[in-house]
C-alpha cells in the first residue's frame, strides 16, 4: 500500500504468469531490449555508405524550416506549394520558426484555403468532388453503423452530432456563397431600367 513500505502483492504470482503467458519475461534483461540504451553510437549499423548523402535535385524552391542550416539533402516532392495556400505556406516557412504558434496556425489556415481551392478547381474539372463517395459515408449502411454505436456506451457518441456540421458545414457555406455570388453577378448583368412615361 502507498502508506507503508512494501509494494502491494500481485494478484497472480510471477511463476504462474511465466507458465501462462507465452514469452513472459523474454526481455526481462534490459540488455535484450533493442531500444536500450536509447542512444548507441554505431555509424556503421544503418547500412549507410556515405558520411553525407548525395543531394537530391531541387526542382523548385523547396520550402524549409528556418531552423535548418540548409536544405536537407533528401526531401519529399508530393505537393509543391501553389496558389494562395502555397503563398501562405511560403510565408509560414520563411518568417516563423517551428517554435512560433504563428508558423503552425498559418499552415493550418493554408490547409483550409487549399481545400477550398481544390474544391473550386474540381468543379470545373471532369471529376468534381463527391462528398458522398469521398467521405465513405455509405459504409454506415453496409458496415453496421447503427448497431456499432447503439447500446455500446461509446463516449464518442456524445459528440457525434458535431460531425455532420464539421464535415457538411463548409459545403453548405460554399453553396450559400456560390448562390450569393450568382445572384450578385446576375443583378449586375441585368440592364438598368429606363424610366418611361
Amino acid at each position: 500500500m502507498a502508506y507503508t513500505p512494501d509494494k502491494p502483492a500481485l494478484p497472480v504470482p510471477i511463476e504462474e504468469l511465466r507458465a501462462r503467458i507465452p514469452g513472459w519475461g523474454a526481455d526481462l534483461d534490459p540488455k535484450d531490449r533493442p531500444a536500450v540504451p536509447r542512444e548507441r553510437f554505431d555509424p556503421g549499423a544503418s547500412g549507410a555508405h556515405w558520411d553525407f548523402p548525395d543531394r537530391q535535385p531541387e526542382k523548385w524552391p523547396r520550402e524549409r524550416s528556418i531552423e535548418h542550416a540548409f536544405l536537407p539533402p533528401v526531401f519529399g516532392t508530393s505537393c509543391p506549394p501553389k496558389g494562395l495556400s502555397g503563398a501562405i505556406r511560403k510565408v509560414a516557412y520563411r518568417r516563423y520558426s517551428e517554435g512560433r504558434a504563428a508558423h503552425w496556425l498559418l499552415l493550418i489556415a493554408a490547409d483550409r484555403v487549399n481545400v477550398v481551392e481544390a474544391n473550386l478547381a474540381s468543379m470545373v474539372s471532369l471529376r468534381p468532388d463527391n462528398p458522398i463517395t469521398e467521405t465513405g459515408i455509405l459504409s454506415e449502411f453496409s458496415h453496421h453503423g447503427l448497431s456499432s454505436r447503439l447500446g455500446k456506451k461509446r463516449t464518442d457518441v456524445k459528440h457525434l452530432w458535431l460531425d455532420p456540421i464539421i464535415v457538411g458545414g463548409p459545403w453548405v457555406v460554399r453553396g450559400l456563397l456560390g448562390y450569393h455570388l450568382i445572384r450578385v453577378v446576375r443583378r449586375r448583368g441585368r440592364p438598368r431600367g429606363v424610366p418611361t412615361g
Partner: peptide, 27 residues
C-alpha cells in the same frame, strides 16, 4: 521512418529523428 542512416541522430540509432530528410521541420 524515412532516414539517412548517417546524420548525428541516425549514427546514434535515433532513426526516427533523422536530420537529413525533412526540410519542413527539425522537430
Amino acid at each position: 521512418n524515412v532516414y539517412c542512416g548517417s546524420c548525428f541522430f541516425c549514427a546514434r540509432g535515433l532513426y526516427s529523428n533523422c536530420h537529413n530528410v525533412n526540410p519542413n521541420a527539425t522537430a
